[in-house]
Design a protein around this nucleic acid. Structure first.
Lengths: 240, 240
DNA sequence: CGATTTGTTGATCTTACTCAATAATCGTGG
DNA sequence: CCACGATTATTGAGTAAGATCAACAAATCG
């Protein structure tokens, strides 16, 4: 019971369920991990968590709100790399070079916990399960990036949007939020940029999916009316 | 001197310079790492290192030759995820799920070392520097994947091919091989698949780059005649 | 050396981009 | 709270980059 309580506290305070999966750490270990996490001040919409070129010193766990990670290409164009939702961890791409190549910006009011990386290194050297978990976290990020690669290399605009919405849906569901009704925290232009499409194409596909009765779109509010069809459109193995 | 000698041995025997960067591990630690690495039997062209769905148990270091990693999509289409050259490590995407989602196949006769993952976990818990290095390795893979994402999301066919060739060139250079003359170990169809293009487009861009005098293409033999122009075409910040 | 696979080139077609105009939404200050 | 300007989203028309289809050439392999 004590263990359960501690886990719940971790979860609710800083989205650490991602960093500390249930049952892998003891209560004491969990407390140790908790102790290195700094409660972050809330970010306002548009505020930066870090900029490209900044020294890397911490990972960040999103507690609430959402964060856009992007870099700027040679022509000064923004390149959206990822969106992070509550419970997710960002910054892992900067470990190798010890420098952020991309920037992170709040898409809406957001609260973020800072996890000093030196402490993660130190602690994970002592807590075997934390090390194992860190390897998995990093590995998962690789797999997610590879899936996006495949999306960008081969899929049509409809498949991209379908897969994107299903992906958001599943991530919200994991966080015990509605899988069928949610608010898109990002602008159409961010979605387009992320999926390698033009804004107009995103708009058109939304309209088309709505006409097909698969989706209800009201600005940023999304309702998935036909999860099964959306999966088909996205050509996902996974199904509702 | 002893240290140097040991490092050299590690390097030459199994491409472990990737796993064990110089100066981060002591001679003894290096020996320990060496001891867990299994010399692999050589693979023939077309042979599999692992299949999609296989249990994950090891990382692999390419000693010689080259390996193609790919998965099969819903329609049975191959999706090339990455090419691995001598000195590079593959398999890291499978740590999280403990199962390979993609397959790895030799593009030519190749020699590969097997690094049992359980041993990596155990050893890196004791050798802090190895843990630090593993984090970096995983983080680097994330960054590489993100760069490919950006390529696929925004770049033209010419930029993709240019960046692809420059990328190979730099990787060969790192391995002290010629940066300007090399043999493409993969088929045009693999390049096309990897870059999200049609085979015909790859062919045409090669021809065009040759006409421009940037490249000399003779089947799989490539000579970069004008590194600077190729960088420009690829829109890379990095330059010859 | 012939068969099969792999690569090149040409002609046509399609998807998604660009440009342009309009509509809706958001944020701010009166 | 409403009005205004600014940003963001939608829709339409025309265009272009790259895909597809098809034929042929070259390399590879048994």
């Amino acid at each position: 019971m004590n263990a359960k309580a501690s886990f719940t506290v971790s979860c609710q305070n800083c989205g650490l369920n991602e960093l500390c999966l249930p049952h892998t750490l003891s209560v004491d270990e969990m407390d140790e991990v908790d102790s290195i996490v700094k409660r972050g001040k809330p970010l306002q919409r548009g505020e930066y968590l870090f900029h490209a070129g900044d020294d890397f010193s911490s990972l960040f766990a999103v507690r609430s709100g959402s964060i856009k990670v992007f870099s700027i290409d040679d022509k000064g164009e923004e390149q959206v790399i990822a969106f992070y939702l509550p419970g997710e961890i960002l910054g892992m791409d900067a470990i190798d070079s010890a420098r952020h190549i991309s920037a992170a910006k709040a898409l809406e009011t957001a609260s973020v916990c800072e996890i000093p990386y030196r402490d993660v290194e130190k602690l994970s050297a002592n807590i075997q399960n934390l090390q194992v978990h860190m390897y998995k976290l990093l590995s998962r990020e690789i797999r997610i990036d590879q899936e996006l690669q495949m999306l960008l290399a081969k899929k049509t605009s409809e498949e991209r949007i379908g897969a994107f919405l299903m992906n958001l849906s599943m991530r919200y569901e994991q966080r015990r939020l509605s899988a069928t009704r949610f608010r898109l925290p990002m602008a159409r232009s961010d979605i387009a940029n992320y999926l390698g499409l033009a804004v107009e194409t995103v708009s058109r596909v939304f309209t088309r999916l709505q006409t097909m009765g698969v989706l209800k779109v009201e600005g940023k509010e999304i309702e998935i009316l036909d999860r099964h069809s959306l999966c088909d459109i996205a050509h996902l193995k996974t199904d509702a």
